[in-house]
């Protein structure tokens, strides 16, 4: 059997992760359901006045997207850690950097991408003005990718721990904050008639930095977790 090249190998990892995800459609739906439920909490907590809801909508939507991304990050490596597939991956001759990136990419495709695509529905439910919707979708597309990369670091660090669930939030929430700041600022800028482009550019810059550095940290963290 011939050995697949590095890119072909990570394409296979990506495909495998996506197939695994599609076989469990309920788990793909869970973050979206979580998104919908938390959106419903805000009118109940803040009162149903449209003016107030629309004022807070960019921040609310971004925070919920962040939380649902956070809750799914924990599971990125857990299944493969438990059945030993992760150890095989670490032993494989192909660079871990690319295969880790494939894991993160798969995670983003089944959470961040879907969240960004359904977010206009929830934006309308929270009475957000239509002017901000394009900025919301674009900022979520870029921002959730950064969140997936950062969340992957937390997942890799805590994958070997039995009580990792709460810990991962403590580790990575502080690192999420810059993304939240620029993501919600992009929507707010669009709502007040300013250009959202600069904020999206900063999110794009964060994504580039994250893609270059986060897989290194994830790979190192996975080796530590598997050795422990």
């Amino acid at each position: 059997m011939t050995r697949p090249g590095a890119l072909a190998f990570s394409a296979r990892v990506l495909r495998r992760q996506l197939v695994l995800a599609v076989r469990r459609p309920v788990e793909i739906g869970n973050p979206l359901l979580f998104f919908a439920m938390v959106v419903a909490l805000f009118p109940l907590g803040l009162g149903p006045a449209p003016a107030q809801l629309s004022l807070f909508a960019p921040g609310i939507l971004w925070i919920i997207a962040l939380l649902s991304n956070l809750l799914t990050s924990d599971a990125v490596f857990r299944g493969d850690f438990e059945d030993g597939a992760l150890e095989q991956l670490l032993l494989a001759p192909q660079p871990l950097f690319l295969s880790v990136l494939a894991y993160i990419c798969a995670h983003w495709l089944v959470t961040g991408l879907l969240l960004a695509l359904v977010s206009p529905v929830f934006a309308v439910m929270l009475h957000m003005a239509p002017a901000g919707i394009a900025a919301l979708v674009l900022s979520l597309l870029l921002g959730t990718a950064v969140l997936s990369l950062v969340g992957g670091i937390g997942a890799a660090l805590t994958v070997g721990l039995r009580r990792g669930g709460m810990l991962i939030s403590l580790l990575i929430l502080p690192l999420y904050m810059p993304v939240l700041i620029f993501g919600s600022a992009a929507v707010q800028a669009a709502l007040s008639g300013l250009a959202a482009g600069p904020y999206l550019a900063i999110l794009g810059a964060m994504l580039c930095l994250g893609m270059a550095l986060a897989p290194l940290a994830i790979a190192a963290a996975l080796r530590i977790s598997v050795d422990a």
Binding site: I153, L157, L171, P174, L175, A214, A217, A220, A221, I224, S225, A228
Partner: peptide
């Protein structure tokens, strides 16, 4: 120690 080292470098 190693995991914390990775985390503090990320930080």
């Amino acid at each position: 120690g190693k995991a914390c080292a990775v985390l503090s470098l990320v930080g």
